[in-house]
Nucleic acid binder design. Structure first.
Length: 479
RNA sequence: CGGGGCGUGGCUCAGUCCGGUUAGAGUGCACGGUUUGGGACCGUGAGGUCGGCGGUUCAAAUCCGCCCGCCCCGACCA
């Protein structure tokens, strides 16, 4: 840790974010512009995210596989919208082994095309369906402006790709996976999200319909935290993914794709972080409990350390992720600040007084300072800790939800909308036209984030043009 | 790619306008000692082709030219 204080979030959110990422040792800048190195602590967080999602994918019948990093350029060109959407941000390999390649290879920006090609080989009959495959991997998109985790040239993610016999099944799958993302965000990451449908201009290049979970960050800007796409028959037609149905009729498949990336780490940082640094939800935190031994001399150390070791072992055996900070070269006060910067949900201090009193001092990360401190008995510690962690997890969610709801407004007119999106989200009736959407973007930089699945019902008039509108949409400035 | 800013020990920066001893500070790092329940202190030490190349000059971190890189604001996006 270098400088002592972080910039206040309220003063300079963007600089606060950059420093938290680096000082918590989640990631660092790579020597290539726009690329990041995910450091062990950040990767460990990602592994926990992976495990939480993968468990949910497996529970709904999905299996993992791995497809190549390189995709023939011609594949991208087979789906018109897809190539138009992605060509500006492709990295292309033209030389291999010192020879110019006959056909350039694209470093995958996403894998619909190469997986579509394989699916056309594998799927012959309705008996082969559905195909439910997920891939954990990395992709490359040549972005102009980059931020650690939020937008880098290369990022890690999972992409699910499924093929179905009917349109209905594909739509069900698309919404099922959107719901899994929602459950993951809410239950595992304590990040409140709004599941909804993307507007035409915001949808995935090549999709019929795109769905998203949108989250509000600590500066009120919106972050698209995961997406699920109903691809219709667009890729099935482009890659000839067909099957024989029960009547021996040749039919095109209906496909979907869905993805969630390391960007979600950015969502966690910007949802829960405070002026002391990172705050991690207990269910995903690489370290859930850090134990700081307190002693002034060798005699006290000899008393304290056995208790520290015993409690550490006891908690580890109860399946908590525990770290003992036994560094001798820094003071306890330094360690407190250090682990707060890294967002560890719960700290236990164990000193001579605790050895005397059969106690430990606990400190909750979500309540910095004295309010978060409480002396616990050493008896039945795992049960007490479990309760505390559950409570921290819940209070992180509640706090984020309260913050979000306090920054969503329903403007009475367009002028009011323009003000709202400067520091919040506007939830408004919208006629659905590209023109009205574009006007808001031009006037305010805010875009439509999603048309939430949960609609108030009834009808209204478009906040921009005043024409009849059937759905309400969120407008917000986004990452 | 357009507009703005910046490149000096690992990091943050002073010094550059007005050229002139051996290029500084804070922090970090190493070693020794005293400390340790909210970012300890003292001492010693290591660490620099001043982004690169060229020019002007007796003399360049400092002046001039070209190049490279990074950051911020726009256009593009998970």
């Amino acid at each position: 840790m270098s400088e002592e204080k972080l910039p206040a979030r309220a003063e300079n959110f963007s600089e606060w974010y950059n420093q938290v990422v680096q000082r918590a040792e989640l990631a660092d800048y790579a020597p290539v512009r726009g690329c990041m190195v995910v450091r062990p602590y950040g990767w460990s967080l990602w592994e926990n995210i992976q495990a939480a999602l993968d468990r949910r994918f497996k529970a709904t019948g999905h299996v993992n596989a791995a497809f190549p990093l390189f995709i023939p350029m011609s594949f991208l060109e087979k789906e018109k919208e897809h190539v138009e959407g992605f060509s500006p941000e492709l990295a292309v390999v033209t030389i291999g082994g010192g020879e110019k390649l006959e056909e350039p290879l694209v470093v995958r920006p996403t894998s619909e095309t190469i997986i579509g090609y394989m699916y056309s080989k594998w799927i012959k009959s309705y008996r082969d369906l559905p195909v439910l495959i997920n891939q954990w991997g990395n992709v490359v998109r040549w972005e102009m402006r980059t931020r650690l985790f939020l937008r880098t040239l290369e990022f890690y993610w999972q992409e699910g790709h499924t093929a179905h016999a009917t349109e209905k099944e594909a739509e069900e799958e698309t919404l099922r996976m959107l719901n899994i993302y929602t459950r993951f965000a809410v239950d595992d990451a304590a990040v409140p999200v709004i599941p909804g449908r993307k507007s035409n201009t915001e949808k995935f290049a090549g999709a019929v319909r795109s769905y998203t979970i949108e989250a509000m960050m600590g500066d009120t800007r919106a972050l698209q935290a995961g997406t699920s796409h109903n691809l219709g028959q667009n890729f099935a037609q482009a890659f000839d993914i067909r099957y024989l149905d029960v009547n021996n009729q040749l039919q095109y498949c209906w496909t979907t794709s869905w993805g969630l990336s390391t960007r979600f780490i950015g969502a966690i940082i910007m949802t829960h972080g405070d002026d002391q640094g990172l705050v991690l939800p207990p269910r995903l935190a690489p370290i859930q409990i850090v134990i700081v031994p307190i002693y002034r001399n060798d005699a006290e150390k000899a008393q304290v350390m056995p208790v520290v070791e015993r409690i550490s072992r006891e908690l580890t055996e109860s399946n908590f992720r525990v770290k003992v900070d036994d560094r001798t070269e820094v003071t306890p006060g330094f360690k407190f600040n250090d682990w707060e910067m890294r967002g560890v949900p719960l700290r236990l201090e164990i000193g001579p007084k605790d050895v005397q009193n059969n106690s430990v001092m606990s400190a909750r990360r979500d309540q910095p300072g004295k309010e978060g401190k409480k002396s616990l008995s050493q008896d039945q510690l795992p049960g007490q800790i479990a309760e505390l962690l559950t409570d921290i997890q819940a209070s992180l969610f509640d706090r984020a939800l309260a913050f979000r709801d306090a920054h969503i407004f329903d403007p009475h007119d367009y002028e009011e909308l323009k003000e709202i999106v400067q520091n919040g989200w506007a939830f408004s009736w919208w006629c659905g036209s590209d023109e009205c959407e574009a006007k808001v973007k031009e006037d305010t930089k805010a875009t439509t984030r999603c048309i939430p699945l949960d609609q108030p019902g009834g009808k209204g008039t478009c906040i921009v043009c005043g024409k009849p509108a059937e759905e309400k949409v969120y407008f917000a400035r986004a990452y």
